[in-house]
Design a binder for these strands. Structure first.
Length: 423
RNA sequence: GGAGAGGUCGCAUAGUCUGGCCUAGUGCGCACGCUUGGAAAGCGUGUAUACCGAAAGGUAUCGAGGGUUCAAAUCCCUCCCUCUCCGCCA
């Protein structure tokens, strides 16, 4: 959510941001209109409340019965007016809130123009593409090695589910281990929390109401399965005021992620690229506004280090305005090359969200110099999505004989397995 | 799942029965000042958040949301959470 003061003082900035994303900027005008009407009615209601508070206090001290009754009758009328105005205020607030929550974050000036993936800008590349005519896609390679079972996944839970077994399951666990240890070394604190969260937590992170249909929900309580641990980490400090001395805070967390993928029905159905359940290790930062730009670059470097240590060739993409998440000022994507599918796979998305989520989730900090509290900035980035990292490793590291070499970095957790081969 | 006790401005507590001097008291912590060679102690002052307003000031918030009333921390209803005991079960 943007700051209402910005909408008031510089609505053109918000409009320009929406245009840059290819959106119709009219919600900004609607917000300006609702806000000004809201203030008008609020002023009126508060004046009446001030009067009522004052007179009510007098009534408490009055001895004269008749005069007292007269005042009570008068205040009863004032009370009715207040009630009507309060209802109007509540309605205006609701409408304003609804409009404010569809106005996206303003893209950073470095964000390139454009509305589709085509307009994203490649920043840099690392690593060599494996060349050869023997590279198979993972959906063939995995079952052949006996580590990936699509049929049983479907039997258990339907399409877009799969089962990892033996060395496949172990490889994923090794990756989780490796990433958490790496991020800890990079300065992040490991967190483990609920994989099910309340609706208000999703709201604070900006997932609700917009993405309601993409979430799995408990059938009788206001609880949802996590679509990403970005949500739970944001919620970690919801409604808190953090002392400046306690910033920045860096967190890393492993969690499964659950998504109904309603919006991408029929897309990427093959293999493990897009499942309803996948694991992810997340990086997250809460910091002061003046540091978020630098922290973003550092987080990108942390994600790149993960790829390099695993030997995964990648390219770093700066997303164009139309392709940048609505909560973000600016987003980078890290894409891994997969030799079997012959395509770039998004394995990490790293964003500076600025105050956008913090404002919504009421996460603020108290400056040491005594200034007033203000929203912190938040950043989030995948420390790599596990399935796509698995794809890259399996496909790129395969040998002409159909075996797969385990990256050195993962060996400490592989129990002596250096090569994946048919059991 | 059953029974009970609770949730108050950083922390700890008073206030709730009996609605109005609650503009929420007190202690601790914290900040500043006085005192001191310096410190501790002591003394004094200050110490939530949001919104409206140029300001003065006003409004709201006592777990959340409704209700009663001229007036609600206080009375009523619903919900959330915590603790204790019982039952059941990883």
């Amino acid at each position: 959510m943007l700051d209402i003061n910005l909408i008031r003082e510089n609505p053109e900035a918000a409009r320009a941001g929406m245009r840059k994303r290819g959106m119709d900027p009219s919600p900004v005008d609607e917000a300006v209109r609702l806000d000004s009407r809201w203030r008008e009615v609020l002023l009126e209601a508060e004046a009446l409340k001030a009067e009522r508070n004052k007179v009510s206090k007098e009534i408490g001290k009055m001895k004269d019965k008749e005069a007292r009754e007269a005042k009570i009758a008068a205040m009863r009328e004032v009370g009715d007016k207040i009630k009507a105005l309060d209802e109007e205020i509540a309605k205006l607030e609701e409408d304003l809130h609804a409009v404010m929550s569809i106005i996206p974050n303003i893209p950073d000036e470095r964000v390139p123009d454009g509305f589709t993936e085509e307009d994203n800008v490649e920043v840099r590349r690392w690593g060599e593409h494996p060349e050869g005519d023997f590279y198979k896609p993972h959906w063939e390679l995995g079952p052949e090695l006996g580590i990936l079972d699509f049929e049983r996944g479907v039997k258990l839970a339907g399409s877009r589910f799969y089962v990892l077994s033996g060395a496949g399951a172990r490889l994923q666990r090794a990756l989780i281990h490796f990433m958490l240890d790496l991020h800890t070394r990079q300065g992040y604190t490991e967190m483990y929390g609920p994989f099910i969260v309340r609706g208000e937590i999703l709201y604070g992170a900006g997932q609700l109401p917009k993405f309601a249909e993409n979430l799995y929900k408990d059938h009788e309580e206001d609880l949802y399965l996590l679509p990403t641990s970005e949500v739970s980490i944001t919620g970690m400090h919801m409604d808190e005021i953090i002392e400046e001395a306690d910033l920045p805070r860096f967190y890393t967390a492993y969690s499964p992620c659950f998504r109904r993928e309603k919006m991408s029905a029929g897309r990427d159905v093959r293999g493990i690229k897009r499942g309803h359940q996948f694991d992810k290790v997340e990086m997250y930062k809460f910091c002061k506004p003046e540091n978020s730009a630098d922290e973003l670059e550092k987080m990108v470097a942390d994600a790149e280090e993960t790829c390099r240590l695993l030997g995964i060739p990648y390219r770093l993409i700066l997303k164009c305005a139309g392709d940048t998440s609505e909560t973000a000022h600016i987003s980078y994507d890290l894409e891994a090359w997969s030799a079997g599918c012959q395509e770039w796979l998004e394995i990490s998305s790293i964003s500076n969200v600025g105050a956008f989520q913090a404002r919504r989730a009421k996460i603020r900090y108290r400056p040491e110099n005594g200034g007033s509290v203000q929203p912190v900035h938040t950043l989030n980035g995948s420390g790599l999505g596990l399935p796509r990292t698995m794809i890259a490793i399996l496909e790129n590291n395969q040998q002409p004989d159909g075996t797969v070499i385990v990256p050195e970095a993962l060996r400490p957790w592989m129990g002596g397995i250096e090569v994946l081969e048919k059991a």
